[in-house]
Computed example of a mutant assay.
Amino acid sequence: MSNQKTSDILISEVGPRDRLQSVSTTMPTAHKKQWIRDLAAAGLREIEVGSFVSHKLLPQMADTGEIVAFARTLPGVFVTALAPNLHGAQDAFQAGVQKITIPVSVSEPHSLANVNKTHAQMFEQVRQIIACRNAHYPAVLVEAGLSTVFGCTIQGVVEEDDVLRMAHTMAELGVDEVGLADTVGYATPLQVHRLFTRLKHDLGELAGSAHFHNTRGQGLANVLTALDAGVTTFDASLGGIGGCPYAPGASGNIVTEDLVYLLESMGLRTGVSIEKLLVARETLKQGLPNEPLYGFIPDAGVGKNFHYAGEKA
């Protein structure tokens, strides 16, 4: 986990990965670098800059190695990337990432659709990735990002006990963090509070981030209840787009701009400037001119009574 000394809540910006993998347009590398530069300038201190996957399947991610190298030059930015298998993890390690997230689906049908692996095969991949990290890249963090934890559009219901069993397996395999993702936007506040409370109880400091989608309008409500359960790291995407190409109906990450407004208005420091996020949003618009952007704050503004946490009212 990256440094949170100047903030109460860490916002991990996942747009350069989750957003760009969900659209058919490929953003030019130079423009992607400018976008990430603007995100960093806005105060975002953890950025998931891409994924190390097959270029044939996701050509939008073909330049991830170059993007990692660029992002590592930005002061104060903790650079993360997604890696679904050993080959991708090795590429990520060599590129210089500071953390990788391994997507591990609790729903086996989704695992087969997303990474073409059974649970047993995925466990072996995690085992090999941890062994490679331990032997050659000990400073790099490894997160298991558990997906479809609140339900799956392919399997249907996903039992909470199955989620906890998967989390324990990941901890036993040696990951540094276990995050929970609402891949298809099924989560409700009661589910979120109950499951994160159990995760914190079982795994302690290994219990990691919350990754919510706003597919059914529950994203920020889920943030509030996750906060109450002790979560301090939240994934979000500038402009609010994102989704899994292999999960039918998955769409809509929570909007970074709206999340910052919510947290700061509650007196929780994020270290992120909404005004500078809007600059990054314009860069994003230019890079993907035909893609819709979402969010209330960019249209409505913050209002005259708004002030950042720590500022005098």
Rank of each mutant, 00 (worst) to 15 (best):
N3Q: 14
K5Y: 06
S7C: 12
I9M: 13
L10G: 00
I11D: 03
V14I: 09
V23F: 10
T25M: 08
T26N: 11
M27Y: 14
A30K: 07
K32S: 15
K33C: 15
W35K: 02
R37V: 01
A40P: 01
L44G: 04
I47R: 10
S54Q: 10
S54L: 11
H55T: 14
K56N: 13
Q60L: 05
Q60P: 01
T64K: 09
T73N: 08
P75W: 13
F78Y: 15
L82T: 01
P84W: 13
L86H: 03
G88W: 12
G88Y: 12
A89T: 02
F93Y: 10
V97Y: 12
K99I: 07
I102R: 04
P103L: 12
V106Y: 13
S107R: 11
P109D: 15
H110G: 04
H110E: 12
A113L: 06
V115D: 08
T118Q: 04
H119V: 02
R127W: 09
Q128G: 00
A131S: 04
A135I: 01
H136L: 06
Y137W: 13
A139L: 04
S147N: 12
C152L: 06
Q155I: 07
V157G: 03
V158I: 13
D162N: 14
V163R: 10
V163P: 01
L164K: 13
R165D: 12
M166R: 13
M166T: 15
M170P: 01
E172N: 00
L173D: 03
D176L: 02
A181T: 03
D182W: 07
D182F: 05
Y186S: 02
A187I: 01
T188D: 14
V192W: 11
R194L: 08
H201L: 02
D202F: 01
L203Q: 02
E205Y: 00
E205L: 01
H213R: 09
H213P: 00
N214I: 03
T215Q: 12
G217I: 03
Q218T: 12
G219W: 14
N222G: 03
V223C: 08
T225F: 12
T225N: 11
A229P: 01
G230Q: 11
T232K: 13
F234I: 00
D235L: 05
D235Q: 15
A236E: 11
Y246T: 15
V255R: 09
V255K: 10
V255T: 08
T256I: 05
T256F: 06
E257G: 06
M266R: 15
G271L: 09
S273R: 08
K276Y: 08
L277C: 06
L278N: 08
G287C: 02
Y294N: 13
F296K: 08
D299F: 06
G303W: 10
G303V: 09
N305A: 05
H307Y: 15
A309E: 03
G310T: 07
E311Q: 04
K312G: 03
